[in-house]
Design a protein around this nucleic acid. Structure first.
Lengths: 153, 153
DNA sequence: ATAAATTATAATTGAATTTATTAGATAAAT
DNA sequence: ATTTATCTAATAAATTCAATTATAATTTAT
């Protein structure tokens, strides 16, 4: 399946916005780094703005974080751009007449919920500042390269 | 993308195979409960068979678990039908020429890896027997119904 | 003021992946 | 032998993400 990379792209944009290694951070400039198009960048940024994570002004290419990167968690970003969709999907399109079947999915739901809660707890514990710190440490490390990124698909 | 429910459907099939509330468990019968088609059921079952989770014989509609449900984890089932795709996707299709961008994804990768490892640890700790036990408890509970399943999408 | 560049947003199209369907081959059961 | 069912592959349909296109509104520069 084609998996969404909106969370990854959002973090990408947020780190660039936060550290601003370029000047005049237009959506075109962000799109160039993410290798996507300016409009898609704006779609993501629009959601981050709605969530109160960034601030931006129409026609003014200087997006800023709206709050301290220490108080922006990975979960906040995920919720902003992906909503509350869980990572594991139940099959709700089963035969409602089949009692056993319905109860299997309901049983499974209990387990998915626990897993989802754990994932969210972890994502809530990771803040943008920490991702930035790790990024800056990597920037100093010459071993960090593209090959490493695409190593396992 | 269309979100995969192969894991949920696999558990669905495995619980029915294990508890066998119907007799002569044909792929058509399983498909009726999952509300899909017999061929798709067979596609899933083929992978479960390859993974050594079930046994079945061509033309013989009596699939069985190949091993004790206590030793079949949710992770085993996931790996069998979904492979080793992580739940959170990095964006590897970014601009390789952009050093900052590459290092952002590499930084994020560190966090995704930790999350993924935790998810897998949890999935490895959930076995099919436990899902079956919970299912049977629900079967006795008249409150368990289809509305409850589709409650939050 | 006017023009150029940019953000904001919506609508449409394209592409990738999942699920559905169809079909042909093999094996078991009667 | 005939029927039924699994197994597998190949193709079609459906779904969702991302790309593209288009329009409007706003800032900046001239």
């Amino acid at each position: 399946m084609k998996k969404s990379v909106k969370l990854s792209d959002s973090v990408h944009a947020l780190v660039l916005i936060s550290t601003d290694p370029f000047h005049n951070l237009t959506s075109a400039r962000l799109a160039e780094s993410i290798k996507t198009n300016p409009s898609f960048v704006r779609q993501i940024m629009s959601k981050l703005k709605q969530a109160g994570i960034i601030e931006s002004v129409t026609g003014h290419p200087q997006p800023k974080l709206a709050i301290d990167p220490k108080s922006i968690s990975l979960l906040d970003i995920y919720r902003a751009v992906e909503g509350d969709a869980p990572l594991l999907q139940l099959d709700t399109n089963i035969n409602p007449e089949c009692g056993p079947g319905v109860n299997i999915q309901l049983s499974l739901k209990d387990y998915y919920n626990v897993i989802q809660q754990n994932i969210e707890k972890q994502m809530a514990a990771i803040d943008l500042q920490s991702i930035i710190d790790n990024y800056e440490k990597r920037l100093e490390n010459p071993k960090s390269d593209y090959l490493q990124l695409i190593a396992d698909k």
